[in-house]
Nucleic acid binder design. Structure first.
Lengths: 215, 215, 215, 215
DNA sequence: TATGAATGAGCTTTCATTCAT
DNA sequence: GATGAATGAAAGCTCATTCAT
């Protein structure tokens, strides 16, 4: 059992899901992620999950309900915690540079993030079309993350490691560049050859120093 | 007739499309952009275009053909030129700073880009699911743009305005941050309040100097 | 319930078909036989069968699949056995003339054959256009029947009742003339008046003695 | 230009058809023959004929009209004459055997018949479904041919070459066996290996003497 | 006369959803 | 709870036919 499946099962246990429900969710994640929500059929998901078509509708009133039931709890319980996990520790440590913080943050979470990419992919694919998800995303993820991240940023600004730009802008740039790398790497052009360590290092360097030459 | 429609019509004239074909394309862009490709029905597009459903299939053998016929020529004829337009002029000018170049590049094109956002949205929504589009995108847009952008970057590197990072990485960061802003601004959170000029300025500043403090 | 339907139901039971599937097959046979495969619509078949159109496609992936599913098993289970049924008995009997054998063979089977004519009609209508059916027909019917018929012919040749022509040619002539009568009678010109018994007798006479006068 | 095309063109000239009409008819024969009438589309015929779709409907009000326009004149002007051609000569000649008559009749016409098989195929495919064609066939071909053939048969009966069976029955058997051979050979199993001369000889022998042994 | 874009009815097929078992 | 046959609306697509040019 992979770490990802473990994580999902943890989640399942909290929700007290039956065995069939778990299989349905795993199959749905795989299918939605590969083909997109609209192009996925419930019959295909049922087949992949090894359950009857009717079983899906016993647990989820509609197909959209299945989508929301997958993405919503993962937004609350998984993605937000993933990003802000251990930030308190970081905040307590002294003399740490921002570079080290970023490196630790990215590297610690990269593997897991990669494994969760199917769900992330679904999330970003569907947010433009599902107002329900968009609002949940704003409420649960964006606000949550930005709040926590801003605190870290302010702390580093106070230590003189970061410029005086508004914390939410710094947060946006940091997140944009991390996600920008991950999206190029795993969603848009997974077939190209990538030197992951080097790209991460460059991303950190870029976030910190930009590309303008200091004279 | 909006400027966007004008632009489309320019494009149409080059392709010598009939009146109905133009209406179909406009309706398809609108529908695909609003609902995504898979969730759009040809009957809805036909209705919106004011033509019979059969007319769509007279011009485009399949629904996917319609998608590709919309996105592909816009990739070749519009998006790539849009990004690299006037780069030669820029390259000729002396004493110009990178900041000014970025500002000119972004501001010149922003309005148009915003109007073309429906197509851009379709492009990025469908690239993960349509290998055909992904390859065309790599071939027509990525290579084309990166080639041109790299020349500009090298020229600025020679003038001592940019650090010695590989040009394609600098290009990736610049594009990531510009698109990152535009996506947040227009696709993900169009409902939030934005101070566009300020955000553009900050994006430029960020690209140039990062967020690390110079001691 | 007619004898034909009884026969079909026998067949159905072996295949363990649901009630709706049986209705679909009966309706399909009727429709294909009346209008030909290509001119029959699935919606008409569904209406005639009293099921929803979707039900047809739940059981038969495509319309062609429905055609093949009707014709193929009837070729294996019905037509070949029909023709060669009881041949062993015939082979065991002594002193029987070929005329009596032909008369028994034709008369025994004529009623049933007439009732199965819809399926036979479909078979012969579609064999020129469906390579799949043609191959199945060759494999299941032609080889099977010719093998058995040849044995009978050789047995009668040994008894001195038949000339020394190759058995497969004799078989071909016999079958041609029997089918030729049945086709003229039931497919091409069913509206003409026919004296069936007389025509059968003449057919037998013709097969045995030809039309040349013995001097 | 093959003999078949020559024949068609002869026919065309009598009907004073335009060049496009001829092309349409040739294309329609080819398509109907390959796929059957219902499975052939007018657009495919138009493409094959090198004319616009509209052109077909300028000359033939409906698709069925095109079918009838092809089959009907060929029934009157071609098939009936083909079968009964030169019968008068035959009737005049003395001492000719039936075998020689059949051999001459079959062999003389076989090549041409083979080339006309597409039309013959269409005719027999569609007669069961098109009452119009069936009536024309009965009127133009069956009666015509049977009349002429019967005269020949009676003549040979008078000469003592044929048994006293009703002429129309003798005609039916002869035609059945000739067509039976040609259908097996060219429509049902064209892929098998055939020794044409031998089969024709056997067919003649069979028609004359049957398969019963003379003791 | 010939064209071919346009039509819309109708085709085959898919699919989310229901419900008797 | 679980099933899967059945549904029927709607999907993508085809095609004979029309008509302005």
């Amino acid at each position: 059992m992979t770490e990802e499946e473990l994580l999902l099962r943890q989640l399942f246990d909290e929700e007290k899901l039956t065995d069939k429900q778990k299989k349905i969710i795993i199959a749905a994640i795989e299918t939605f992620s590969e083909k997109g929500y609209a192009a996925s059929s419930t019959s295909e998901i049922a087949k992949k999950a090894g359950v009857a078509e009717g079983t899906i509708f016993r647990h989820y009133k509609t197909k959209k309900d299945l989508l929301v039931s997958i993405v919503a709890p993962l937004m609350t319980k998984f993605i937000a915690p993933l990003v802000v996990k251990d930030f308190n520790k970081v905040l307590d440590r002294e003399f740490e540079t921002v570079e080290e913080f970023l490196r630790a943050t990215i590297e610690n979470r990269r593997d897991l993030l990669v494994r969760m990419l199917p769900v992330v992919k679904i999330m970003f694919q569907e947010i433009p079309f599902q107002p329900e998800l968009r609002e949940q995303f704003l409420e649960l993820v964006v606000k949550n993350i930005f709040n926590r991240v801003e605190k870290v940023i302010i702390s580093y600004q106070e230590k003189g490691f970061l410029i005086e730009m508004p914390p939410e802008s710094i947060a946006r740039f940091a997140i944009t560049n991390i996600l920008g790398f991950l999206f190029s790497r795993y969603l848009l052009f997974p077939h190209l050859k990538w030197d992951d360590e080097l790209e991460i290092e460059r991303t950190i360097q870029f976030i910190m120093h930009g590309v303008g030459k200091r004279n």
